[in-house]
Amino acid sequence: MEKNMKKYFPVFVLPTFVAFTVVFLIPFVLGIYLSFTEFTTVESATWVGLENYIKAFTQDENFKNALWFTIKFTFVSVITINVISFFLALLLTKALKGTNFFRTVFFMPNLIGGIVLGYIWNLLINSILGVFGFDITYDADFGFWGLVFLLNWQLIGYMMVIYIAGLQNIPKELNEAAMIDGASPFSVLKNITVPMVMPAVTICLFLTLTNSFKLFDQNLALTGGAPARETSMLALDIYNTFYGRIGWQGVGQAKAVVFFLIVAIIAFVQLKITGRKEVEQ
């Protein structure tokens, strides 16, 4: 069969692979090269070595601020989203009335796009702060917590349905046997439920980590970085460097390479750590 198929490579693989090469592979390699150059267009690049990387870390307060803001934001969001969605999944697998309705409602925000979500929350938060005479751009803390609430609202339902699927895979006999042996509900949760849903935990941590770290649309729509770039996350800061600062495109590209490396390391380390804790089934 393989022999028959071999000459069909152009039909089966080429269309996808050409598109992939043109919009991803070539831009990726070119992007790494350009991070070591100064350029205003792709053709006008001149080699400057590590200068862009040095500039990004020494002459650009916005970048360091964005990096720190993104780390804080990711830390808080990952914990709150996973704790709340896991708790809701536990409640919704207890055969309560209205489970389907609740699942529908909690999942719904996940379908709305980041830009629209950002402006919906912009209205809500400014309406509440307006009572006290503030708005969201008044203080960077408002923007920070606004983004945390927004992302919780968006991702809780998504993570919840993954945890529900994980919980439903636990054999009922396991819980019953533990109960008969006199285990308390808390020890069942700690010793049976959590270890058994570890695969779901791995996935949810990965999804929330990468989604929080790479957040762009919601950031742009909710705060736009205001006040004074203090609530810019990394993706938005890189965008602003490329399109808002003439002559700094090389620095923007260097920041993007750093951004890529951080995301790759986070993804790799996290999958290694939680992957090890999964129970063999």
Partner: peptide, 12 residues
Amino acid sequence: SMIVPFQMVMYT
């Protein structure tokens, strides 16, 4: 390609 953020290839 799945782990590469969009900003990495945005400009090029």
